[in-house]
Amino acid sequence: MFTRIIDLFRTTKARHRAILAPFPKNPQPSPSLDAGEVVAFFSVNSFYETEAARMVASAWRLGLSVHTWPFVSAGSWVRNASLKPTFLVHQRKNRRGPLLYVDVDAVFHNDPWPILADLDCDMAVYRERGDRLISATILINDTPAAQEILALWKKRCDENPEVWDQVVLQEILDEDKASGSSRYREAQLAASFCWIFDRVENGIPEKIYIEQLQASREISREHARGKARRGLKRRQDRVRTIERILNEHRDRLRK
C-alpha cells in the first residue's frame, strides 16, 4: 500500500513537470495598434499588493498598458471578489476601447491583443471544460451590451455578496443564452488566456498569453495538508522562478 502511494506521488510530480511551460526570459515588446488597456484591482495591506506588482512587471516588459487600483478589503475573499463588477462598471464607464480584466495573481507571457482584437463580441470569458466560467480573465468590449452585462452583474453581486462573482456572471450569461432571444454576444477564450501552471488537464498550449498563479492557495497555508500543501509548494516554486526572471530582466534594463 505504501509503495503504491509513493509511486502515485512520483507519477503525479512527473505529470506536473511535463506540463510546466517555461516563463519567457526575453520577450520582445511589439504593441498592437488595436491594443486596449489591462485593468485590475487588489486589496491594500495584503499579499495581493505583491501579486499586483508582479503582474504589472510582466505586462510592462511586453509594452502593455496596465492600470491597477487598491481597495479596502470587504472582510472576506468572496466579498472582495464580489466587488469586481463594481470596479468594472466604473472602468467601462470612464475608459474607451476594449478592456482586459485580469486577476492580479497572474503574469503575462505574450501580448494578448493580436488575438483579442479580432473577437467580435460584447464580452469574452474562459469556460473550464467549456462549461464552468472562470472570471480571472475577461475581455470587455466598448459596447452598450457590455455595459448592460456589467450593471446587471453588479446589481446581483450587491444583492448577494456571499455568492462567488463568477457564479453570478455565469448565471447571467447562461440565462441570456437560454432565453431564446439573446441580447449578449459572448465569445470563448482559450485556456491559454487563463492557463493554470500546474493543471494537468490544461496541457501546454502552443502559445500562453496569461498564466494564473493561484494566490488563493496562500490563504489557508497554515492549515494546508496533503494535496493542498503540495499545490501550495508548487505555486511558491513557480513564483520564485518567475520573479527571478522578471528581476533579471529589470537588472538588464538598468545596465
Results as ranks from 00 to 15, higher is better:
133 L>V: 02
134 I>G: 02
141 N>W: 01
141 N>E: 11
143 T>L: 08
143 T>Y: 01
144 P>M: 02
145 A>C: 09
149 I>D: 09
150 L>S: 01
152 L>F: 00
158 D>F: 00
160 N>S: 06
163 V>C: 05
164 W>N: 13
165 D>G: 06
167 V>K: 06
168 V>F: 00
170 Q>I: 03
171 E>Y: 03
172 I>C: 05
174 D>L: 14
183 R>E: 15
185 R>C: 15
188 Q>P: 06
189 L>Y: 00
189 L>M: 04
191 A>Q: 10
192 S>L: 05
194 C>S: 12
195 W>G: 10
195 W>D: 12
196 I>P: 07
197 F>L: 10
198 D>S: 13
198 D>Q: 05
199 R>Y: 06
202 N>V: 00
202 N>C: 06
203 G>F: 03
204 I>D: 06
207 K>I: 12
207 K>E: 12
209 Y>C: 03
214 Q>H: 01
215 A>T: 06
215 A>I: 05
216 S>V: 00
220 S>A: 13
221 R>D: 05
223 H>A: 11
225 R>I: 02
228 A>F: 04
228 A>S: 10
231 G>Y: 04
233 K>H: 13
235 R>L: 06
236 Q>R: 14
239 V>D: 08
240 R>L: 15
242 I>V: 09
243 E>T: 08
243 E>A: 13
245 I>T: 15
